[in-house]
Simulated scan of single mutants.
Amino acid sequence: MSTEIKVHRSVNVPLAPERAFALFTARMTEFWPREHSIGSSPLDRVVVEPHVGGRWYERGTDGSECDWGRVGEWQPPHRVVLLWQLGADWKFNPELETEVEVIFTEAASGGTLVELRHRHLERYGDQAQTMYAVFDSPGGWTGTLTAFAEAAA
């Protein structure tokens, strides 16, 4: 049995949980780093279909779509689990499934603590440590959550 490999990041935002959840799920285009696009044309939108089993994908400026994964759990406004299905080659792999769990907790200040855990990176096999380093880097989830916090301000 292998040990779970995960990246854990958190950020406080000045929004109520409902608004933070909506920004993260319905308005991901507003903060997702454009350089993280993997489609064949420039990124136009990031789409999270708002239900369990919904698609998580990017749409290019030419209308093409590139799957990233799907929605594993949908519990607005407190929790969403997105199933990341991109291989180490940054291509959709329906056989691979890591979990991006995002929890939205109301803070005493009236804002929201947003905690992100990208779990099960060990499922990348030989590439697990490489992918951990990518997701753990300043340009990985840290940068994405920083952009999220800026969009929430």
Rank of each mutant, 00 (worst) to 15 (best):
I38E: 09
G39S: 11
S137L: 07
D136F: 12
L96P: 11
L121I: 11
Y124H: 01
I38S: 13
Y132H: 12
M28H: 00
E115I: 04
E49K: 04
F148N: 00
W56E: 01
F104C: 00
E122C: 08
A133L: 10
W90I: 06
E101F: 00
A107S: 02
E106T: 06
S109K: 01
E73C: 02
V47W: 03
Q129A: 11
H36R: 12
F24N: 07
D89V: 00
A26H: 06
A147L: 12
F135V: 03
A108R: 14
R45F: 06
T130N: 14
S109R: 07
R34I: 15
G54W: 03
A107W: 13
G39E: 02
W90N: 08
W68R: 06
W68Y: 04
W32K: 01
Q127V: 10
P77K: 08
A88L: 04
V48Y: 05
R27M: 09
E58L: 13
I103M: 08
F148M: 01
W68N: 00
Y57E: 09
V47P: 01
P33N: 10
L86D: 08
E30V: 00
Y57H: 00
S37T: 12
V47A: 02
G87I: 06
A133S: 15
T29C: 00
V71N: 03
H51F: 07
V81N: 03
A149V: 08
L96T: 03
F148S: 03
V114N: 09
L83A: 10
R117I: 13
E35R: 14
R59M: 13
H78L: 01
A133P: 02
A108H: 09
W90P: 02
F135E: 03
R59I: 11
T146S: 14
E30Q: 09
V80L: 06
F92R: 04
G54Y: 01
V71C: 01
V81Q: 06
H118S: 11
D67M: 14
V48F: 00
G63Q: 10
